[in-house]
Amino acid sequence: MSQGPVLELRGIDKSFGPVQVLHDVAFSVYPGEVTALVGDNGAGKSTLVKCIGGIHPIDAGEYFFEGEKVQVNGPRDAAALGVEIVYQDLALCDNLDIVQNMFLGRERTSGLVLDEAMMEEMAAKTLAGLSVRTVKSLRQQVSSLSGGQRQTVAIAKAVLWNSKVVILDEPTAALGVAQTAQVLELVRRLADNGLAVVLISHNMNDVFAVSDRIAALYLGRMAAQVRTSDVTHSQVVELITSGRSGELGLRNGNGAAS
């Protein structure tokens, strides 16, 4: 567990036109661990994740992957490093089945020619490796799946290509209790299988249930990155709402970094 970070950002700035959304953000994620990324609405979580995924170009700052400084100029660069993001809207095709969805947009990037049977086998192995037993048939159309099952398919798609970092943007937001439990267990299992996982969530029970570290964004600044075993619920809530909590967090109220 004392390995170095697989992905590390330093000094990230990002503006949309005149509005600066991220200020000098540092962020590290570790293999085998779940890092929860928390912050109020508008704090910049999704923007940070899109910078990691190469959707948004960064204005300033450095991006390290496995200790090497890298340039990520688009989603393909991120995917090539092994960074996968499951966005809030999931981007699954309703009229395709599970296997087709898992390989959608990937046939070409892999450089392999895959037949249907091979794809089905790979999909089945991935789902089995995640101990997913909730889907009946891999040839089911995605439109027939529940919210939790859709989330599961999207996550399985993200880990299919030996990814190293998987980022989940509010995967439990729209789910009921039973499905939330399944997705949380899946998130934990990804990390226990050795992946670095980033979980964005507003639900403090979800965060404390599965995370090893918590990174709190406040008004576009990284207020603190802490180990989950070192903090309490109320400290994390303070970091989210005011950017600081006792010794932790930003030094002054207007959000200048400590």
Partner: peptide, 28 residues
């Protein structure tokens, strides 16, 4: 546990020896 983990872990984090819990894994 999943529905009250914030409370469960906050309590663990305040009343255990740091050395005893630092590598503790809580799982379902």
């Amino acid at each position: 546990y999943l529905g009250s983990a914030a409370q469960v872990r906050s309590r663990i984090n305040t009343v255990t020896l740091a050395a005893s819990r630092e590598r503790l894994r809580l799982r379902t």
